[in-house]
């Protein structure tokens, strides 16, 4: 019989999981470099990229599982999430970190990552995500852009016999199974820099068109927020690194 405790206070292995699509010329390379510093393995699903994303992922030693889909599944996002989850748990991880291809953990978070996972009191950790806007120096903060005001569950303990499920939604599916909500978690005052909006005005406009095209009636998200992507003068706040 397996006597391994299901929650370990030392020696936990951390696997990062990402779904990516056409990220070769954006932040993916830096993200993978960054993750390689503090995770044990990286698991990636390439959602039918047409650029060099797949090859870029292959070039990182810590990417131990990599699947490229022939046809994009993004229109059924929960299935894509489910597929990534199954791939990630096939690495027999102790903890999983759900990362986007344009997200960076602040240095303080990376320093504390092992402390966060080598304990047996909570099974997930929430972080504050900051939406950088138009560049890498400022983040956006107004009533529609305040994701950093709450915690987002990004780091979870993998418990093999727990029941995991994603809500069967086509868009805006949480990155990690919803069932973690019933387990105790820890809300860390640690930050994640999201560069998805740290792009030019033209690129933001393209993203706006993409959102409007995939969800024209605001069924999965807020139309008001989609519209606010085009705001000329959003409130921006300068990012300050916390000292280590």
């Amino acid at each position: 019989m397996n006597h391994k405790p299901i929650r370990k206070t030392s020696g936990n292995r951390l696997t990062a999981m990402l779904q990516v699509r056409n990220e070769a010329n954006r932040y993916l390379e830096s993200v993978l470099h960054d993750l390689s510093e503090f995770v044990d393995e990286i698991v990636i699903i390439d959602d039918a990229s047409t650029d060099g994303t797949f090859e870029l992922c292959q070039s990182f030693a810590k990417v131990t599982r990599l699947i490229k889909l022939e046809k994009s599944e993004f229109i059924h996002e929960w299935q894509l999430r489910q597929r990534l989850w199954e791939l990630a748990i096939s690495t027999d991880p102790d903890w999983l970190l759900a990362v986007d291809a344009d997200e960076f953990y602040e240095d303080l978070a990376k320093v504390h990552m092992r402390d966060l996972i080598n304990q047996d009191q909570y099974d997930w950790v929430g972080f504050r995500i900051y939406d950088f806007w138009g560049g890498l120096t400022h983040y956006r903060e107004d009533e529609l852009w305040m994701i950093h005001q709450r915690h987002t569950r990004l780091l979870v303990r993998y418990l093999p016999d727990f029941y995991y499920f994603y809500p069967r939604m086509d868009h805006h599916v949480p990155r990690l199974p919803l069932s973690y909500a019933v387990l105790p978690g820890f809300q860390a005052e640690l930050r994640v820099k999201h560069y998805g909006w740290a792009v030019s005005k033209e690129e933001r406009y393209e993203k706006y068109l993409r959102y409007m095209s995939s969800d024209p009636n605001g069924e999965w998200g807020s139309l008001e927020q989609y519209q606010s992507i085009l705001d000329e003068y959003p409130t921006l706040i300068e990012w300050k690194e916390d000292p280590l």
Binding site: Y163, F165, P167, L178, S179, A181, V182, L183
Partner: peptide, 14 residues
């Protein structure tokens, strides 16, 4: 039932 509890934010069901 567990799924429905969680989806409706009744989280005290562990």
């Amino acid at each position: 039932s567990f799924e429905q509890m969680v989806l409706h934010d009744y989280l005290d069901c562990l």
